[in-house]
Amino acid sequence: MRKSYGEVRAVDGVDLRVSAGSVFGLLGPNGAGKTTIVRTLATLIPPDSGEVRVLGHDVVREARAIRDRIGLTGQYSSVDEELSGRDNLVLLSRLRGFSWGAARRRTGELLATFGLEEAASRLVRTYSGGMRRRLDIASSMIVTPDLMFLDEPTTGLDPHSRNQVWELVRGMVGEGATVLLTTQYLDEADQLADRIAVIDHGQVIADGTPVELKRSVGSSVLRVRLRDAGQRDTAERMLTEALGTAVHTGADRLELTAQVAAEEEATLALAGLSGAGIGLAEYAFGHATLDQVFLALTGHPADGSRAETEEAA
């Protein structure tokens, strides 16, 4: 799939396969091309080239067959601010083909399921971010879609609302829906997705299960936190020697992380530090986080600030 806007190649040769009944995560910073991919798959914009089939149908020639079976929840809320929550759901139930009576019944069920009964008569304009997102997802669940697109479903939500959205996504998958989720949060992809494609500059730079992705970068990661920042240089030198890999230091002056090929090396390195009298406040040994995966794959952190600067330029 390719898609350009003038000179900008928003999507540059993306090839994805999403299997039914799973959650597929598209992970990347702002401006990576995630939304363009979702909009193409949801039949909103045609691809410039490439064959794109969704649920067995071509996105250009058989768009209506796809639209019958998908749900789309856009990056900002795809709900009507000037209507009440109830009227939003009645409207969309009617547009899915329910009679007025059935539309009202379905709306009642969804308002209850999504915890929106009390706010049902209020204009959506007055809703909090979390309520708006719940209404948004409810609007996509009026008929259970075979494929649900969630474009950055938790961007801008507080942790409590984010957890609610995650539970809803798990519930949808429990009902047999396939979910294609975009996110710039690495822990979100890790929590929800069965498979992840990492997108940068309109290209897939890696894909696999979360575990595979983490393994591909280098098996495991040792993280230590020093008691005394003055011992940092000594600790960094000793770890580099013991592990034979680069040691990363972050914004936190007490923390050091390094990739580890074999567990024994980590044990020996820790013993070495303690033998040299370097006190550790804490240490952890485990799989790489997706943040580290992103850094290793792209050479820059997944903070999105770089992409935003480019867009502004």
């Binding site: 899915r96 083909g97 059935a102 379905r106 399921t113 669940m141 008929v143 949808m172």
Partner: peptide, 24 residues
């Protein structure tokens, strides 16, 4: 479906006609 979120599952009605959508 018998699962916790069974209200999420709904039968698919037939596609609405042009007149019905317009009136909506």
């Amino acid at each position: 479906p018998g699962r916790g979120m069974s209200a999420l599952a709904a039968a698919r009605p037939t596609r609405p006609g042009a007149l019905s959508s317009t009136l909506t």
